[in-house]
Design a protein around this nucleic acid. Sequence first.
DNA 1: CTGTACGTTCAGAATAATCTAAACGTTCGG
DNA 2: CCGAACGTTTAGATTATTCTGAACGTACAG
Lengths: 184, 184
Amino acid sequence: MERTTAIFVDGIGAAAGTSGVFSQLQGRIFALLYLQSTALPLEDIAAELQQSKSNISVNIRGLIEWHLVRRMPIAGSRKDHYEAATNFWRVMQEVMERRFRWTVRQVLATVGETERAAAAAPSRGQDAGRRETATFIATRLAALRFFFNAVDGAIGAFTQGKPVDVETLQNVIPFAPAQPQRRR
Amino acid sequence: MERTTAIFVDGIGAAAGTSGVFSQLQGRIFALLYLQSTALPLEDIAAELQQSKSNISVNIRGLIEWHLVRRMPIAGSRKDHYEAATNFWRVMQEVMERRFRWTVRQVLATVGETERAAAAAPSRGQDAGRRETATFIATRLAALRFFFNAVDGAIGAFTQGKPVDVETLQNVIPFAPAQPQRRR
DNA sequence: CTGTACGTTCAGAATAATCTAAACGTTCGG
DNA sequence: CCGAACGTTTAGATTATTCTGAACGTACAG
């Protein structure tokens, strides 16, 4: 591999590894393809990156799902060829929707489940402490839901190219900080 | 642990685990604290989540760095007490800046290094193929830089509460898709 | 048909991340 | 000072992730 390519592959691989979205190897595969003017067969990618074909196979599938790599039919060859995609905005949309927004919705779903469980719990109306705790929890869950709903909306706006309303997010500071007590 | 709390802890733990930013245990710690009206000592957290104190200790440090948890002095106790922070916007800013933007800058740095390496490489002016390759690589690197510069700017705007200019990102489609060749 | 050239799947090996318990250092009450 | 109650560090164990090579399935050329 060319020295220039090696630097790029290492750097992008490292960045991908810390991204929380792509593995280091996926970063290296993409980087290698991105500097090629022609699509590469699986075999060559494995050889360049010194990995088994099976490993490249499974990692490249992930890249294709994120629309970072395309399978390219090459006339006269039975091998699958791959090339880097260059529509980064598309990739970003995909990541926003499928990873971030999915996580946000997981939180919202959990809040919902928890609220239902809290409502179903026998908070025995008499006991004052119980009732207090119940309203406290309800308030906190509502605050969480409010914020994550706003985030969900912001991601939706972003991926549709609409201006993102940051104000809504900023203004969610639902509780005054608890008063610090002196120690000792 | 209460059934309601358990549901919340499990759900938020799962969400955190897939977030790419927080570990599952960190999610569980935060979730537990978030439903408490009073700060908890390390020992109690460890007991509730059935983890060793050392493990809670190291994970909670991460939460504090992200501003998701605060250390709370409690009068008359030598134990460290912890409570959940509720300024989620602050946390989001922190994550955006320290993780996403940092990754983006890693990419930009790599592009810079690669460009310098390419310039230094002996592309032997005579060889036409070499020169072609060099300009191809230069073009691709420039496109990457352009896009990630825009992303960097967008993150900066977002964290400062300014409207995010999505247009710039959307319009970066630097290459026409390569013409598919027929197979066989 | 048959054989070969592929990509994928899968069981196990290698590697990395997480977790525990013991040792350690520090603070504070006595 | 001394001793006990803490939180932290660290070495090793456990668990999860990544990777490999062999087995398998498929498509195509002859």
